[in-house]
Write a protein that binds this DNA or RNA. Structure first.
Lengths: 339, 339
DNA sequence: CCTTCGCGCGAAAATTTCCTTCACCTCATC
DNA sequence: GATGAGGTGAAGGAAATTTTCGCGCGAAGG
């Protein structure tokens, strides 16, 4: 075979651009018959992107009986055929390997191998095509895979909504306040309490002084200590959680810069907030309380705050980050994953 | 690219005799096979439909250098790799055919042939999706709007990867265990501790008995109390957090059903886990530690668990949900401060 | 009805591609 | 510096794909 090496001739990195063999030019079109139509190098025959079924129908008349059987099998169930070897497909269609290869050639591929690749792509394409009910609410009898898909989709949606709805001016102001704060208090109860803690953990990691409060009494007690240049953040989805508003009000009255992260910017909490960051409110269903998606939204806002602050205080944040990382290293069991 | 000085430098050093737990037998044999749930024995590991990039990132740390090169090539340009034979890809990555095959195996495919097929499918998939312009890492001098966009995009990606990579068999088994549990303990420290609390809060809301532990000592103390029919869940991104593994081990030894939620399914934590739920690992950058995206991923898994359990226990969950909702209603005020 | 010819078809050889085994080499540990 | 445990690639074997070649069926002509 003069064609010799696609692979061997590759000689490496150039390969990424064009495929090895073709670029070099075929030595001699020794291949008789077949009009060379199959070769990608020679003709302008596109490997057929996804319109395979159409091609099958177009070419069907010019096919022999056996080839039609193969073509039909391929067109009707690409996924199944992609999983079969040449021998398997031959058996399935009651034909021979040679016929399968001939069919692949007729469809425009150099051989069965490439047809199979295209088939796999087509199958994947079809797979993605069907996901119609994902947008529906989660039902009690949804199978697990649907639950996962719906949840992931919903949360993605929440993220997009949040990002789109974030007021950059408010965010910027909040970041500036945080970056220059002497200390920062974060108030949140329930699910929002976890978000408050998350923010606190992050701020501590870059060397800032921050504390989260879930206990309303302690929160107020601490809020009294705040003064100008300090920052207080209240996190509440409803915007009307008294236990969180109260400490924020105290902080506000004592001259601290106050920030509210809420899904209801028109709620009571905003009264005492210098800056309001709005989280998105996703539709809720019985199985999926609002708290669930609000958490996702809140966390994104918190992350944005964190990154923003880290950027502005990069000089001190970077060392602090690595320091906290180092400090934790030994907590990971040695003998762990080898690599 | 992310591997410069990979985080795991910490874990690397110890490596005293511990094979990655993947295939290794469990320390305590003779436990129920649990309906073939165990994925390790060569169970029905899904060959990964389109979540290949995620899988690469998940498994990259447990790969050798050469394999990482192959994996990276595959992940960065699936289309090009799909066009290459085993020899071609070996040359492209400067490795040997054996290494390519080994990598394919590690990614969950029987051999390179099947990886190649999946690659073709992935390529077709990417073809349809637009190339997002915000894939770059977050830089120190990024303006705030870019930060928000990138963060949101990254987290969306993380969600998609997680959903795609979740093993439904394991998830189903975990849900069943939780739904039938007498009590549930959840272990997590640091950022994962917040996720543990989140899960606990949710389970409590539907009337289950659950408790989160961040204190390793208390966690172990509690783990001793567990017995068959109880469930213990460990949440750790690294898969090698001793403070979390220890209580899980104790629970495991006492006969409880154990579940691990980790980004490193090959890590030590899996040794003591009846069911392993894998979270996705996003690429990390200096400003965006891995802990950040792992949290998103973990939360999705936790949400899936929650919904799954709520479905299975709907009769009791629904009333419990509304009851807890009612109980909190008065905490939200419409006007001024109360109390 | 028989012969001749063309052509579709498949079995098996030829070849490429993929997988496995084994020995070498590197690196880490003692 | 010795020792051992993998990572790594080269070569050989297995499986796939592609090509070759001849059989058999049906049609046209004798």
């Amino acid at each position: 075979m003069s064609e010799g090496g696609r692979a061997s001739g590759a000689e490496g990195r150039g390969a990424s651009g064009g495929r090895p063999a073709e670029t070099g030019g075929r030595p001699a079109e020794g291949r008789s018959g077949n009009g060379g139509g199959g070769g990608r190098g020679g003709g302008a025959a596109p490997p057929a992107p996804a319109a395979l079924a159409a091609k099958v129908r177009t070419l069907a008349p010019s096919m022999t009986r056996s080839m039609q059987r193969v073509a039909e099998a391929v067109a009707s169930d690409p996924a199944a055929c992609a999983a079969l070897t040449v021998t398997g497909l031959a058996e399935l269609t009651g034909t021979s390997e040679a016929t399968v290869v001939r069919t692949a050639r007729l469809l425009g591929y150099p051989g069965y191998r490439d047809l199979r690749l295209a088939l796999a792509g087509l199958a994947a394409h079809q797979q993605s095509g069907r996901a119609p009910s994902v947008t529906a609410d989660i039902a009690v009898d949804d199978p697990l895979p649907d639950v996962v898909a719906k949840l992931a989709y919903d949360e993605q949606q929440t993220l997009a909504d949040t990002a789109a709805g974030l007021d950059m001016v408010q965010l910027g102001a909040a970041v500036r306040a945080l970056a220059g704060a002497r200390r920062t208090d974060v108030y949140g109860v329930g699910a929002s309490g976890l978000v408050a803690q998350d923010l606190t953990q992050k701020l501590l990691r870059i060397g800032l002084i921050a504390q989260a409060h879930s206990d309303p009494h302690l929160a107020v007690t601490n809020a009294v200590q705040l003064r100008a240049k300090d920052v207080a953040i209240a996190i509440t989805h409803s915007g009307s959680t008294g236990d969180v508003i109260e400490p924020l009000r105290v902080a506000f009255d004592h001259g601290a810069t106050t920030i509210a992260i809420t899904g209801r910017p028109d709620g009571p909490v905003s009264q005492y907030a210098d800056h309001v960051l709005t989280t998105s409110t996703a539709r809720e269903s019985e199985l999926r309380p609002a708290a669930m998606s609000s958490r996702t939204s809140q966390l994104l806002v918190v992350d944005c705050l964190f990154i923003g602050v880290a950027q502005r205080t990069y000089e001190s944040a970077a060392p602090a980050l690595s320091a906290s990382y180092e400090a934790l290293a030994h907590r990971h069991r040695s003998g762990g994953p080898s690599r």
